[in-house]
């Protein structure tokens, strides 16, 4: 493979990897605050993309449509927390899994009823000829994806490290009991976290929709890949989520490019899941933290 081809796959990889990273970040935010894995995370991505398409075709300028879509999905995330998660915050892990799985089914079907089965796309954020980097073409949207993803990551870092509320959220993640004793309003922290997580996911959806088409059923795949990215980077670590997302995107893209086999692209999705299973199976205890035996 030539350098040009290689770079082409690298750019494709980090572009989709950015969306995985944002999805993984969404998982991480919620997991850190509540210990819940939100199986509806991918649906937020899908909703973001589809809402932006609707707003844009309804006449809103692209920038407004993007912001509006993120706002709409944020509200969905907040409602999801209030209606479905809040009553089960103390329930078993199994109950929480089932509820978020149910929510993903409901959101996906609602999206189908609203937007139909057709896959749709947004126009690119900016017009312009593709750039050429060592012979590889880079569409301007790629720059947008990378730039906005980097901005979101930085903004989250600042929020969690510098603001009081962000520190409160982190305190709750590190030591929930102590946080509660310090009077941190846990309910509000969780609500905020679901809103933020939905917003981040929706942003990912808006960013990717000009590059790859979005349909009601796209969320499941993106969600699973986002989770794979989060696991790859070590669940619970925001930096790991970003690294895991980019790594997964690259692995996916390059394995398609490097496998000497024309049918390989059909198996692109399977590669992400294979990685997920391998990581899960290879170090289940490492991923679960300490062995439960010590906590008898």
């Amino acid at each position: 493979m030539s350098l040009q081809d290689f770079l082409q796959f690298v750019f494709a990889g980090i572009t989709s990897g950015s969306v995985y990273a944002l999805t993984a970040l969404g998982f991480t935010l919620i997991y850190n605050a509540t210990g819940i894995i939100n199986f509806a995370q991918g649906e937020f991505v899908m909703l973001g993309g589809l809402a932006a398409v609707s707003l844009h075709s309804g006449g809103a300028p692209l920038a407004l449509a993007a912001i509006g879509a993120v706002a709409v999905v944020t509200v969905v995330g907040l409602l999801f927390e209030l209606l479905a998660i809040r009553p089960l915050l103390n329930a078993s892990v199994l109950a929480q899994i089932i509820v978020t799985v149910g929510a993903s089914l409901a959101l996906r079907t609602a999206a189908m009823l609203i937007w139909g089965r057709e896959a749709v796309a947004l126009p690119a954020f900016t017009e312009g000829a593709p750039l050429s980097v060592f012979g590889a073409t880079v569409v301007p949207q790629t720059v947008w994806v990378l730039g906005v993803t980097a901005l979101i990551v930085i903004a989250l870092q600042v929020f969690y490290r510098r603001t009081l509320l962000g520190k409160a959220v982190r305190a709750c993640a590190v030591n929930p009991m102590a946080a509660r004793l310090l009077g941190i309003p846990y309910g509000r922290v969780v609500l905020l976290t679901f809103g933020a997580s939905a917003a981040v996911a929706a942003a990912g959806g808006v960013l990717i929709t000009p590059i790859s088409f979005m349909s009601y059923s796209s969320g499941a795949l993106i969600g699973l890949k986002g989770f794979a990215a989060a696991i790859l980077g070590g669940l619970g670590s925001p930096a790991g989520a970003v690294a895991g997302g980019l790594a997964l995107g690259l692995l996916e893209s390059l394995s398609v490019g490097l496998l000497p086999w024309s049918g390989a692209s059909g198996y692109k999705d399977a590669i992400a899941f294979l990685i997920l299973l391998l990581v899960l199976f290879a170090r289940p205890q490492g991923l679960l933290g300490q062995v439960s035996a010590q906590k008898v």
Partner: peptide
């Protein structure tokens, strides 16, 4: 098509 929507909501 409402079936899956109803199922999702019913589970919750």
């Amino acid at each position: 098509d409402y079936t899956l929507l109803v199922f999702g909501l019913l589970v919750i």
